[in-house]
Amino acid sequence: MSSRLPGRPSAAWKGSAFVALCGAAAAIIVAMLAIILADVVRNGWAGLGWEFLVSAPSEGMRGGGVGPAIFGTFALVLLMTIAVVPVGVLTAVYLFEYARPDSAFARAVNLAVSNLAGVPSIVFGLFGLGFFVRFVGGGIDRVFHAGELAWGKPSILWAALTLALLTLPVVIVTTGEALRAVPVAAREASFALGATKWQTISRVVLPQSLAGILTGAILAVSRGAGEVAPIMFTGAAYFLPKLPTRLTDQFMELGYHVYVLSTQSPDIEATKPILYSTVLVLLFLTFLLNATAIAIRARFRAALRPQDA
């Protein structure tokens, strides 16, 4: 070879070394997840069973199960969803369909959404206590119950609303992405037929965004289901003899139960097997929700995709 470019023999192995480094960095995340799962499953699997899933804790947290905490988690998350989805979807529709992107209000909303997403969850907890429990709840009591304590104390309603605030950015952002994914051609087709903006949004844009909106709702749920800090001052209870039946009742919750078992038990060693099993249930629930979100998204995408006749 008579090339005047001598080449750099070191370049090849430097390239390979870099690939190996990137691969190793990527492998760390897989290893971490594997270690966490292995640890939790190994220690928690034996304690799992029908009895564990339905019964209440007993013997000062050393026995029994997590039935009330599972029930409380579902009730909490259901209330949260009812609160967060309409508000989040309406906000996203306003932001991405109606507001001029450069208007002061739209920018303020955008700023609020991205900052809300960055607020530490314990701050939401304190805010929930101060705003929902004391201000709103206390206000209701002063006005309607002559100061008697009914709403102005921690409850599942206030916890759910606090959690809704925490998950609001998730719903807004995923809904916004879903709205933007609706092709211009679909909107134009509707406008060209004489549809108003409202008709186009309600009959074309929102139906086509449904998969994204559902995904957002489920992601919010799976985010909210594991949060402890926002609910510890606003409604979660250490132990309750009965299940919550009213909005003003307190409740037990899986994430909070994990916290209780690991820090508040009189005999931490004795509660360890139960703690592991509880974590396993919590992880399983979260994974299940995420898997559901992915499945729904895939299904709707397939339904919207053109097929060959």
Binding site: E188, A189, A192, A195, P207, A303
Partner: peptide, 25 residues
């Protein structure tokens, strides 16, 4: 009325596509 360069039916049924206009009116 308008017909576009790329056909842009709604991801709905044939019936719903044709009846979309009359319905909104």
């Amino acid at each position: 009325g308008m017909v576009f360069q790329r056909s842009n039916p709604f991801p709905k049924s044939i019936y719903e596509n044709v009846s979309y206009g009359p319905r909104i009116h």
